[in-house]
């Protein structure tokens, strides 16, 4: 499901689009919810997007390409997805070495074996170890493992994150509160085409023997794209 072909056919100037989204997402990395509510120009840009979206939706319905029910169903299905799906997958991998091996070699098959509806997405799971830390980005647009995570947060789509995390990942991670020793290699994954990525974080210390459900609660959405670690609350 490439987002980009849709936007490139709808919006004639991709650069105008990025400029506008940069303005609306000018909050520093780590600030999640407030990015849309601050400045006037950002609000204007958001308004433009809403009008654009409504116009395209009307056209698609008028032309009989999709109907209202199909749109509502897709929106409801998207809203029902959250990072808890990804967290459940990772928690299972922590508890079941065979499942973990399959998840790393054939992630779609492993995820489907948990009964998670997955669509045609091609997924690669990358494992954090004491020596390697993985971070996910889509420098070209906002590709994100939506089937397992729902919608990406605003910062993930921001020009700041997308341009800086490939250039100075450690500085960006530090802004998220994650400082990694120089001996840990950082592997940044740029989802430029058909693959989507999920990070398999390291299991937090002191959680051996925990239930999958309790383990899943140590995983934030941020940890599953590599800008945070799995953590025990409190």
């Amino acid at each position: 499901m490439a987002d980009a072909p849709v936007s490139s056919s709808v919006v004639p100037t991709a650069s105008a689009m990025s400029t506008a989204s940069a303005a609306s997402a000018a909050a520093p990395a780590g600030a999640t919810a407030s990015a849309t509510s601050k400045s006037g120009p950002a609000d204007l840009a958001q308004g433009d997007y809403r009008r654009l979206q409504a116009a395209v939706e009307e056209l698609l319905i008028l032309k009989g390409i999709v109907n209202r029910d199909e749109i509502d169903r897709e929106v409801a299905a998207m809203d029902a997805r959250s990072h808890q799906r990804g967290a459940a997958v990772v928690a299972r991998a922590w508890c079941d070495p065979q499942f973990k091996a399959q998840l790393l070699s054939d992630a779609p098959a492993a995820v489907r074996s948990m009964g998670i509806e997955f669509g045609p997405m091609h997924l690669i799971v990358v494992e954090n170890t004491p020596a390697v830390h993985n971070v996910i980005v889509c420098t070209l647009c906002s590709c994100y493992p939506r089937a397992l995570m729902g919608m990406p947060p605003q910062w993930y789509k921001s020009i700041e994150y997308r341009s800086r995390v490939v250039r100075e990942p450690r500085s960006v991670l530090a802004e998220f509160g994650l400082t990694l020793p120089p001996a840990v290699t950082i592997r940044v994954h740029d989802s430029t085409a058909d693959m989507r990525y999920l990070v398999l974080p390291q299991q937090p210390e002191g959680t051996d023997g925990w239930s999958e459900q309790a383990l899943a609660e140590t995983l934030s959405a941020d940890s599953l794209v590599g800008v945070a670690l799995a953590k025990v609350a409190g």
Partner: peptide, 22 residues
């Protein structure tokens, strides 16, 4: 290697970036 892409990359010599390319 991050240093291949950015010759002035300062952060760590072993860092890397993986990109999907046709």
């Amino acid at each position: 290697r991050s240093r291949e892409l950015w010759p002035d990359y300062q952060e760590s010599e072993n860092d890397m970036i993986e990109i999907e390319i046709f």
